[in-house]
Nucleic acid binder design. Structure first.
Lengths: 340, 340
DNA sequence: AAATTACACGAAAACGATATCGTAAAAAAA
DNA sequence: TTTTTTTACGATATCGTTTTCGTGTAATTT
């Protein structure tokens, strides 16, 4: 049982607790010899400071929370991975919370964090979040928050995103240049800023190339996969069926693939597909999937870096800042018949 | 600034701190009226207890750590997701640590946890871990640990795995029954128990069907993807090339797919492939991948459940226990030409 | 009426580390 | 030599809870 504390150390060395504490923190108040003795004794007795005592004293826990809509998602996982990597370097620890894309659960989690369990929060809001009181409360409690991907424009803080508008534009234009005449957009949620921007990019590209916008081809999807499958199947088997699909998120592209497989719709011959995606197996799909790939790892890393920077300054208010890290288009078989 | 503490509440109510504390914890010592007053005031003043003060006092933090080889891995992510779901229900929080499959980093992380930052640990050991002092230290410090998937037989505690031997046997037999004559096994690490068992299953099936074991067909892979690609390419283009591959983990199956794609080896005609995998897109690969799918979500959930059960009892020693949750074989195109 | 028990609350000691003071002794300056 | 400064350390309050123990009043028992 290594329950050695400062008091034990002090007793063993016949000096005071405060001297031991200062020696271990390399204070200028303590002589070199004493320091050495203390450090040696701490080593030999296997001392390691009780973290919670320090947290209580300093009101800092060196812990942050990542609050995410879902975990089983390549994008978020890579973002966690990026944040985790940089956290370790800065001596921070990461608590993980999944909101299951539900505003109520999201709100509950943030309320739980209100009491100072974490020094800061990295967050991607859930798709049905349209009010932000729970977020503002957190900030007012002095806990800074940095958004990434699914951001809140309404909150003043740092926000990391990719170039959603430009990428949406690029994706749509790529479909047009690949010969598509009727392009559908699969939307994930009307409340999400990223969705809005990607859709704006889509609309802009349509306009530029004098395509008429058909509201029927803008499909409002949700978190309910059954319903999404229905909607996608319906549009792909309707008279007005599109010959190109731009999926705003990976999940919807995969659903599209499933629907096509079951209904013998050939990609890319009958239908070309492009999607925002961080799938590692995009290359190996049948056909390989043309993607807009976000630098998720870097985005997570950047979000964490900014948060740590402000935490180090003991500034709980993070000024508004929009950081954009560009995505990349990878053209593959789902939009180009010459690629397998 | 909601920095309301018990003292503030007590002052506002003109009663003592201890009464407030007891009232909020619904102690029998406090009268009903006082309780109501206190609770109402706590509500109106927005009181929320400082977690670290409680942790310090109780020596419990309601926090556990998950220590994993890597995050960008479908299996581990599902396991995290399972643990996270059950943690929330039990009021626990989860810290995430990635070892990058490196024993040194793993050791460093466990050392960091030694000081009581967490009440318990869920862990899958890294593939080059062959000594267990750092794990034993943790247990001796009174922090219980539950293993899942990549377990340590040498440590006495609860261990959750899938039926690796039987699944390895089943996978190999499936290849044999699919007509394979020369079956290779892609090993991930000789130190890992799961790998060992899967390989034993492979060997047993080979024996049962009077296949001669060819050591050349047992390929020792590693965490270095370049090297794995080389090895797999080498064996698939050698004179002694196999017509069936059993990949012990998903990553190696994907590498096999890449190699086949680049070298025009047709799956399943030239080569049949089966793999342990939790890929959501197994269906959509070219060809779809026959998998042994582990119930990762349930495994994570079960591991967390067991840990919480023991933590609730304040028992820091978890008796040895082996819990097995079976995997499922999903036959798809990579072993059956009639399936796309 | 006296003795006992229950009830409702307050005072204070932990939990373990940190930081502000205060103060001896030694060194430097006057 | 006296005064001032530096050096090195100790005593103590503090962070916010929880919990043990003590105590005065009211209710119950003999």
């Amino acid at each position: 049982m290594s329950k050695v504390n400062l008091k034990d150390l002090a007793k063993a060395l016949n000096i005071s607790v405060s001297t031991v504490s200062k020696a271990l923190r390399d204070s200028y108040e303590i002589g070199d010899e004493t320091k050495k003795k203390v450090i040696a004794k701490a080593q030999s007795m296997g001392y390691s400071p009780n973290p919670y005592a320090g947290f209580l004293r300093n009101q800092k826990s060196k812990t942050i929370a990542m609050v995410l809509p879902e975990l089983t998602n390549n994008y978020f996982i890579q973002a966690i991975s990026g944040a985790e990597a940089i956290a370790h370097e800065n001596g921070y620890h990461i608590l993980i919370y999944a909101t299951n894309d539900d505003k109520e659960k999201e709100s509950g989690i943030l309320n739980h964090l209100l009491n100072g369990r974490v020094d800061g929060v990295l967050m991607s809001v859930s798709s049905n979040t349209s009010q932000y009181e729970h977020i503002n409360e957190l900030i007012q409690a002095g806990i800074p928050i940095v958004f990434f991907d699914r951001i809140c424009h309404e909150i003043e803080t740092a926000k990391i995103t990719t170039n959603d508008f430009a990428s949406g534009f690029l994706a749509t234009e790529h479909l047009i240049q690949s010969g598509c005449k009727k392009i559908a957009y699969l939307s994930i949620s009307e409340h999400l800023s990223i969705d809005h921007k990607r859709k704006q990019g889509y609309l802009e590209a349509m306009n530029k190339h004098d395509f008429t916008i058909d509201e029927q081809l803008i499909v409002q999807c949700s978190t309910d996969e059954k319903s999404n499958t229905q909607k996608i199947k319906k549009i792909l088997t309707s008279k007005n069926k599109p010959d190109g699909i731009f999926a705003s998120v990976e999940r919807l592209a995969l659903t599209t693939y499933q629907v096509c497989k079951r209904n013998n719709i050939s990609i890319p011959n009958d239908l070309k597909v492009i999607s925002f995606s961080n799938l590692r197996t995009a290359d190996l799909l049948n056909p390989s999937l043309t993607t807009i790939t976000q630098p998720a790892f870097e985005i997570g890393k950047e979000a964490a870096t900014i948060l740590f920077k402000h935490l180090a300054k003991r500034k709980s208010i993070i000024p508004n800042e929009n950081i954009v890290i560009n995505s990349e288009l990878s053209i593959r078989g789902s939009t180009n018949p010459t690629i397998k």
